[in-house]
Amino acid sequence: MLETWAAIILAGGRGSRLDGVDKAGIEIAGRTMLEWSLDACIDASEVVVVGEHVPTDRPVTFTRESPRFGGPVAGLLTGVDALLRRPAYVGVLAVDMPHLTMGTMRRLTDAAESAGGDGAALVDPTGRRQLAMVLRRDRLLEVRPSYEAQHSMALHALLSPLSLADVPAVGDEHRDIDTWTDLRDLDEA
């Protein structure tokens, strides 16, 4: 398991498919989605949450993506800039994936370290990459686009030059909550 990695939890965005509700504060089984995400990255040396402040007793740094509502690339790079330390690896996860666990992040960090590439990404049963990954910080900074390009850039475009190991999801790790229907279906599962 990697000893030096920091976590960036992406919790920004408009939440438009959830009527503007901040996903980080939505409760599932009596805990906020932010708390579930913080549990998943308990091994991280530092945690930056890119989004609105949500009460927590955990030691985290909150920041807003720049540009505001700039998408996951802007959020990820703003999170990297907000880190107090310069870790070798950065774990990135979306706040709306409540089935991610500490075990998920450990599998990603192990794969990132052992693959010898630029990191590892969680893939769903169809092979599609999800917003749960561990990236070499130095390689991420090498492919960093200009500030102006960050706002319109898709995450897969940012990551395309990187060699990432695919880590298959176990169970529902890959499921996210984008709509009220997703939340209802999660409760019924």
Rank of each mutant, 00 (worst) to 15 (best):
L2Y: 11
W5P: 06
I8A: 03
I9D: 01
L10Q: 02
G12A: 09
G12C: 00
G13A: 02
G13N: 01
G15A: 00
G15S: 04
S16N: 14
D22P: 00
D22N: 05
K23L: 07
I26A: 05
R31W: 03
R31V: 01
M33V: 02
E35T: 04
D39I: 09
D39R: 06
A44Q: 03
V47E: 02
D57I: 12
R58K: 05
T61K: 03
F62E: 04
E65Q: 09
P67C: 08
G70D: 05
P72L: 15
T78L: 00
G79Y: 03
G79I: 01
D81V: 08
A82H: 06
L83E: 06
R85D: 11
A88W: 09
Y89H: 07
V90T: 05
G91H: 00
V92F: 10
P98V: 02
L100G: 03
T101Q: 08
G103R: 12
R106M: 05
R106S: 05
E113W: 13
G117E: 07
D118C: 13
D118H: 06
G119E: 11
D124C: 07
R129D: 08
Q130V: 10
M133T: 02
E148L: 14
A149V: 11
S152V: 13
M153K: 00
L155K: 04
S160P: 05
A165D: 03
A165E: 13
P168A: 12
D172Q: 01
D178T: 11
W180C: 10
D182H: 10
A189Y: 06
